[in-house]
Amino acid sequence: MELFFQLVITGIVIGSIYALLALGFTLIYKATDVVNFAQGELLLVGAYICLHTTVTYNVPFIAAFFLTLVFTFLMGFCIEKIFLRRMIGEPIISIIMLTIGLSSVLRAIVTIIWGTDTLTFPEVFSQAPIVVFGLSISQVYIYSIFAVAIFLGLFTIFFKKSKVGVAMRAVASDQQAALSMGIDVKRIFALSWAIAAVVSAVGGIFLANINGVNTSLSHFGLKVFPVVILGGLDSIIGAIVGGLIIGILENLAGGYIDPLIGGGAKELFPFVIMIVVLMIKPYGLFGTVEVEKV
């Protein structure tokens, strides 16, 4: 039973990071109709930037964390302005190709600057585990769960209450109508990319603290697909719930099935779930099928 709980807790931590990534993905998809294949690379860049500022410039972790957020915000903003703005109205396949290209370029840049070796953060969180109900949990897990929860909470409030957040959802709902009330749709597009880059960076920073950083971290970007398919492509709540479910199931599969078949189940399992969901519930758990007045 202890193994079970350990797996679940790891699953929640990893799952909450998936949730962040999926939130970014959903945001871009909802607002701009772009399927972003470069989500994992946004995470990668965030992780490296934070690592670099802490290690090379000896900036305290908290400061580096917020500096990274500012940097990735600007980066997301620029990516949209430079690359995707021109693609508005182009066929969806061209846009997908562009994001795939973007992912390769970002990964290459990261490799050029930082190489392929795994780098690790200096000890930011104490190694001593905290014991809760007889389970020992490492501190970085606790911190990342809290940080992710805070971020998800902030964004939920942002989308519900703030003028800009509501405007972003309005753009997602009906672009031309949003335009007719003076909502600057182009700025909203750029903003969605900026926020997506920021949330991915937060995920990346915590992942880096858990496992260290190397370019394979960007594979997390692919896991975002099972998550959003399960949660519903255009649902923010879906991204969060889907992230947690996939994270937990993946770790349980890793703990219980891997020893039986000699590994691989952990990587495979999310995609099996994705295929099953696509077959029986193609809009996912929370995806809108289209609100129709009866």
Binding site: K160, K163, V166, A167, R169, A170, S173, D174, Q176, A177, A178, S180, M181, G182, I183, T288, V291
Partner: peptide, 26 residues
């Protein structure tokens, strides 16, 4: 100048109040 578009074009998945907030964007 504000246009009320043909076919109402309310934001279907937003609540009434959120629709109003979106209208006040400027």
């Amino acid at each position: 100048i504000f246009q009320v578009m043909e076919g109402r074009r309310v934001f279907k998945d937003l609540t009434v109040e959120e629709n109003l907030i979106a209208g006040a964007y400027t």
